[in-house]
């Protein structure tokens, strides 16, 4: 058998495990994630130290000085090392961890954004009016979007989380810990980004067949840019008349999708008014290109098993292409 080369394999594994990047909790870019990371390192270093001491004692008792030891010494080791030490260390860690919790959930000082986890995508509404907590259902209104959430740098954005179907969990590892989106209850999560950038989010609670394809993006920008973005998202569609729109309506897409400024006003699926301004389609699955939109419309279940949207592969190819080209122009 070939010998396992630790010296070479180890760095390789470390590199492959991707400790950096837009979806890594090791690359903290938010206030909460930074604290959780500190907690993690303290726990890890402490655990390694304790493990080393235990191994050293084991070595001492079996190799250095095997044989009988005095009962008194053994008893002392058990009482101090086995009872007092763990109790005190655990108490301190627990107290420290608990102390962090209220600080992680202060009142927001930025925008309030409603995010609804729906099988298998994220409904987003900017600027909703909602007192945190009071509600059982997410506040209605606001500027609708989907699968991409912009937030201002350095502000504590209040994310109100809900769901109409099953429990999902909202997780952006570089920014904060996860928070469940539960039907019949509104949870709040504070995102306080400390760096600009585009971060990956994921659904972190199994919710059905396409659970693993239920991602999203969080885009952190300076506050002025954020305000500008929300104002642009509030505008009606850029191309309100086209052959693509007629086909969209004729083929029944309007039953589920809204395109503001045009007749389609369905609410089952994502708002497509500014589809082309979003980085991905299908909830973080593929980049927004005209080809991807066409493929997605022809067979959504190919991208995401169990998806709510029916396949439209029976439509003539050029009709799909026309719809896709028009959707792809909706910046």
């Amino acid at each position: 058998m070939k010998k396992f080369r630790t010296s070479r394999t180890f760095p390789a594994i470390f590199a492959l495990s991707a400790c950096e990047g837009p979806q890594s909790a090791f690359d903290a870019a938010g206030a909460e994630a930074a604290r959780v990371l500190t907690l993690f390192w303290v726990m890890l270093i402490g655990a390694v130290a304790i493990w080393a001491v235990v191994v050293a004692i084991g070595y001492y008792a079996t190799k250095t000085r095997p044989g009988q030891h005095s009962e008194k010494a053994g008893l002392r080791l058990i009482i101090w090392g086995g009872c007092v030490f763990p109790t005190v260390v655990l108490a301190m860690l627990l107290f420290w961890g608990l102390r962090m919790m209220p600080d992680l959930r202060p009142p927001g000082d930025g925008p309030t954004i409603a995010v609804s986890g729906e099988r298998f995508w994220w409904r987003v509404a900017y600027g909703v009016e909602g007192e945190p907590g009071v509600v059982r259902n997410l506040p209605i209104g606001g500027v609708p979007s989907a699968n991409e959430i912009w937030i201002p740098l350095g502000k504590r954005t209040e994310i109100l989380l809900g769901s109409p179907d099953v429990i999902h969990s909202f997780w952006v590892p570089p920014l904060a810990g996860k928070m469940d989106a539960i039907p019949g209850r509104v949870n709040r999560l504070i995102l306080e980004p400390t760096e600009v950038g585009v971060f990956n989010g994921a659904c972190a609670e199994f919710c059905g067949t396409a659970h693993a394809q239920m991602g999203f993006r969080v885009v952190v920008v300076p506050e002025t840019e954020f305000t500008e973005y929300v104002r642009a998202q509030a505008q009606p569609a850029a191309v309100p008349e086209s052959e693509g729109l007629d086909l969209f309506i004729r083929n029944g897409c309007a039953a589920c999708h809204a395109i503001r400024g045009t007749p389609p006003d369905g609410v089952v699926g994502p708002d497509l008014t500014h589809l082309a301004s979003r980085r991905t389609i299908g909830a973080g699955i593929v980049p927004t290109t005209v080809e991807n939109i066409a493929d997605f419309v022809a067979s959504p279940d190919h991208f995401k098993p169990g998806i709510e949207m029916p396949a439209f592969g029976m439509l003539p190819k050029d009709e799909i292409a026309q719809i896709a080209a028009w959707l792809g122009s909706l910046e």
Partner: peptide, 14 residues
């Protein structure tokens, strides 16, 4: 004692 620690530091429902 451990179970009671939260009441020392957590003062509301958030």
């Amino acid at each position: 004692v451990f179970e009671t620690m939260p009441i020392l530091v957590i003062g509301d429902c958030r």
